[in-house]
Simulated scan of single mutants.
Amino acid sequence: MSDEPKSRPRAFRLDELAPGQKRDFLLEERPDAFEAEAALLVGDAAERAAEEAQARGFLRRAAFSWGGLLLSSLGGLAAFSFGLWLDQLVESLFARSATLGALGLGLAGLAILAILALISREMLAIFRQRKIALLHKALALAHETDDRELAREKIGELAALYESRPETSGARLHLGELRKDIVDARDLIDIAERRLMPALDSAAQREIASTAKRVSLVAAISPRAAIDMIFVAAMALRLIRRISEIYGGRPGMLGAWRLARAVGSHLAITGGMALGDGLAQQIIGHGLAAKISARLGEGVLNGTLTARIGLSAMSVCRPMPFLSEKQPGLRDVAPFLFSDAGKSGSAVSERQP
């Protein structure tokens, strides 16, 4: 019999431990849980990246800057110039004929009304994107702090966001019944994500897949590199707008610019994380495909980059973070790109002696 004292059973609540203590406990008591903890840390990093990109694109407060002052001044001068030109035009029409003057005045009024309507629509689209970004941040905070009242309030806003979507009627009705019954905020948010988001996530992933296929095909058969660049840029902007519409945003011209800035910020922030998502392997696959056909390799790489833009748009435009649902990666939305690279690599291996 050994005289060494046996360790007594210990019980801990992981949420009561500091992050460093929690990690040490998992490594000491549950070595098999290290991978789960690492996945949790990666998920937190992805969420921080999404919130930072939203802050840069949608939640940025107006502040003084020389660039902003220059644009405001030029915009004011352009507005004054347009007003003076319009006034002179109407006066000259009245000088020729009262009928022509009245007609010109009516057309000028319609033009001003259309301009005001376009400006109002742009402002509403910007406010809607800002509302979605704030909802995303609030739901993440409610889930992290287990704030029941905040969770109930924001789940109500989430359901109201999709009240015009018939495909979400069943999920919204179910959430309305559960909002007051479920006490735990995390459970309520997880149920809302599992009920409302899968259909929207699937639609966004289908859009990314179809766009990536189209880009890779056109890039593979296009005779000019300039055509590739123009087509890829146009399809990327279209993809960003389409994903925003799927998740409830309706970006106009200015809203699309802010949205593109947010997606670009997310791509810059998550550039290192993308290497673990299969992008490095895909670049290697591009090199293998290029040995067979340079155009095929360019098509695969352009399709991969387009898919990455779509995934960033998903993270930025989604009204709630990925919590209970798995965040999709490149292999989830565009597996055909990896299979093509693998087939190309196999072909290269077969040709080698």
Rank of each mutant, 00 (worst) to 15 (best):
S293N: 06
Y247C: 12
G252N: 06
G76S: 07
A159D: 07
A133I: 04
Q281H: 07
R295G: 07
I227E: 15
A142Q: 08
R258T: 02
A225C: 04
R206I: 07
P251Q: 09
G271P: 01
W257C: 10
F338R: 07
L150Y: 08
D24K: 04
E51A: 12
L311Y: 01
E207K: 00
R186M: 13
I182Y: 11
E177H: 11
L27P: 04
K213S: 07
I292C: 01
A185Y: 00
A212K: 00
A233G: 01
E28N: 03
Q21T: 04
A102M: 12
P19N: 09
R130P: 04
S222M: 07
D187E: 15
A204C: 01
A268L: 03
A256H: 04
L267V: 02
R258H: 05
P223I: 10
A289R: 02
G285T: 08
Q129M: 15
R130T: 04
V90Q: 01
A111Y: 13
D15I: 10
R308M: 05
K213W: 05
E4H: 15
I227L: 12
Y162F: 14
E325V: 04
G249A: 12
A280Q: 13
C317P: 04
L107N: 06
R8T: 06
E37M: 02
I227G: 09
R128E: 14
S312L: 09
A45V: 04
W66T: 15
A160Y: 05
R241S: 00
L288Q: 01
I246W: 14
A313F: 00
A95I: 02
L103K: 11
L330C: 00
M273E: 10
F64Y: 12
I132R: 05
M320F: 12
R186F: 10
A38C: 06
W257T: 06
Q327Y: 13
P251Y: 10
S244K: 12
I191F: 03
I269C: 06
G170V: 10
K213A: 10
E28Y: 03
R48Y: 15
R48S: 14
V348C: 11
G249N: 10
Q88S: 05
A212W: 06
R56H: 13
R128N: 14
I182V: 07
D332A: 00
L135S: 12
R60Y: 09
N302C: 11
M253A: 08
C317Q: 02
A280L: 12
R130Q: 14
S120V: 12
G310Y: 02
L105R: 09
G252I: 06
K137P: 03
L86H: 11
E167I: 04
A192Q: 15
P9C: 08
R172G: 04
